[in-house]
Design a protein around this nucleic acid. Structure first.
Lengths: 202, 202
DNA sequence: ATCATTGTTGACCACTTGGACAAGAAACTA
DNA sequence: TAGTTTCTTGTCCAAGTGGTCAACAATGAT
C-alpha cells in the first residue's frame, strides 16, 4: 500500500477555499500549498497542475454536497417546498460565509466558470456538468409541481433554466455587493417566476 | 500642450478587450501593452497600475455605451418596448461576439466584478456604480409600465433588481456555455417575471 | 528483515511578472 | 530659437512564478 496521507484532501480543500474567496487566477500553487501545509513537490505528486486540481476540487465539493441536496430535493417533500428549502439553505450558507470570513462568496461554480471558460476547456466542461446537475434538481421539482398543479405549464426544462439563471445572477450580485440580504427573497421571486399558484404567499 | 498621443485610448481599448475575452487575472500588463502597441514605460506614464486602468476602462466603456442606452430607454418608446429592445440588442451583441471572436463573452461588468470583488475595492465600487446605472434604466421602464398599467404592482425598484439578476445570470450562463441562443428569449422571460399583462405575447 | 510502493522534503531552475528609470523626441509657447 | 511640457523608448531589476528532481521516510507485503 505504501505510505498514507491526507495531503491530497488538504490540497482539494485549500484550493476550493482559496479559489472561492479570491479567484482562480489570483491563487498561486504556492498559496494553495501553504494553506494545505503541503510541499510543492507533494502538490505535483498528486496533480499535474492547478487546472487539474481545480477540476478535482469541484468534483469533491459536489460529492460532499450530495447528501444535503438529495435530502432537500427528496420526493418526500412537496415539490415547491423543495425549492423553497433549497433557496433558504443557500441564503443561510451565504449569511454564514459573510459572518465567518467577511465575504458573501456567491456560487463557486459560476465564479470559476465565468472566469476561465474561454481559456480552460476542462474546467469549463466540469462546471457545465455540475451546473446541469443543479438544473436537473430544479427541473424535477418543477415537473412534479406542474403535475400536481401548483405550477402552470408543462415546460419544466425551460423553467428550470430560467430559475437557475435568476438564482445565479442573484448570487453573483450578492457577491459583488458583499450583501446576502437580497437572497432572503430568492424563494418568493422563484414562485413568481414559475407562475406558481400560491405566488407571493411565502 | 506638449506631445499628443492616443496611447491612452489604445490602452483602454486593449484592456477592455483582453479582460473581457479572458479575465482580469489572466491578463498581464505586458499583454495589454502588446495589444495596444505601447511600451510599458508609457503604460506607467498614464496609469498607476492595472487596477486603475481597469476602472478607467470600465468608465470609458460606459460612456461609450450611453448614446445607445439613452436611445433604447428613451421615454419616446413604450416602457415594455424599451426592455424588449434592450434585451434584443444584448442578444444581437452576444451573437456578434460569438461570430467574430468565437466566444459569447457575457457581461464585462459582472465577469470582472465577481472575479475581483474580494480583493480590489476600487474595481468593486466602480462595478457597483455602473450596475446601479443599468438597474436605474430598468427601474424607470418598469415604473412607467406600472403607471400605464402594463405591469402589475408598484415595486419597480425591487422588480428591476429581480430582472437584472435574471438578466446577468442568463448572460453568465451563456458565456460559460459559449452559446447565445438561450438569450433570444430574454425579453419573453422578462415579461413573465414582471407579471406583464401581455405576457408571452412576444 | 527486506523490499516495493507511496508519499515527503527542500533545494533548484528558467522564465515571467510588475515596476523604475534616464535619456530622447514631438509638440506647443515665448 | 530656446524652453517647457508631455509622451516614448529600451534597459534594468528584484520578486515571484510554475515546475523538476533526487534523496529520504513511512507503510504494508513477503
Amino acid at each position: 500500500m505504501g505510505r498514507v496521507s491526507d495531503a491530497k484532501e488538504r490540497l482539494l480543500e485549500a484550493a476550493k477555499g482559496l479559489i472561492w474567496e479570491q479567484s482562480y487566477g489570483a491563487v498561486t500553487v504556492d498559496a494553495i500549498c501553504r494553506r494545505a501545509k503541503v510541499q510543492k513537490g507533494s502538490f505535483y505528486h498528486f496533480f499535474d497542475d492547478k487546472s487539474e486540481l481545480a477540476v478535482a476540487s469541484l468534483e469533491a465539493d459536489w460529492q460532499a454536497r450530495q447528501p444535503v441536496l438529495a435530502e432537500i430535493f427528496s420526493r418526500n417533500h412537496p415539490p415547491l417546498d423543495r425549492l423553497q428549502n433549497f433557496f433558504e439553505h443557500v441564503y443561510q450558507c451565504q449569511k454564514k460565509l459573510q459572518k465567518e470570513c467577511g465575504y458573501v462568496l456567491g456560487c463557486p461554480l459560476f465564479n470559476l466558470g465565468s472566469e476561465v471558460c474561454t481559456r480552460d476547456e476542462k474546467i469549463r466542461k466540469k462546471v457545465l456538468a455540475l451546473v446541469k446537475g443543479y438544473i436537473r434538481y430544479f427541473e424535477s421539482a418543477i415537473r412534479d409541481a406542474q403535475e400536481e398543479g401548483s405550477v402552470a405549464g408543462d415546460n419544466a426544462g425551460l423553467k428550470a433554466r430560467w430559475l437557475f439563471s435568476y438564482f445565479e445572477g442573484a448570487l453573483t450580485q450578492a457577491r459583488i455587493e458583499n450583501d446576502a440580504s437580497s437572497l432572503r427573497s430568492l424563494g418568493a421571486v422563484a414562485l413568481h417566476l414559475l407562475d406558481a399558484k400560491l405566488a407571493m404567499a411565502a
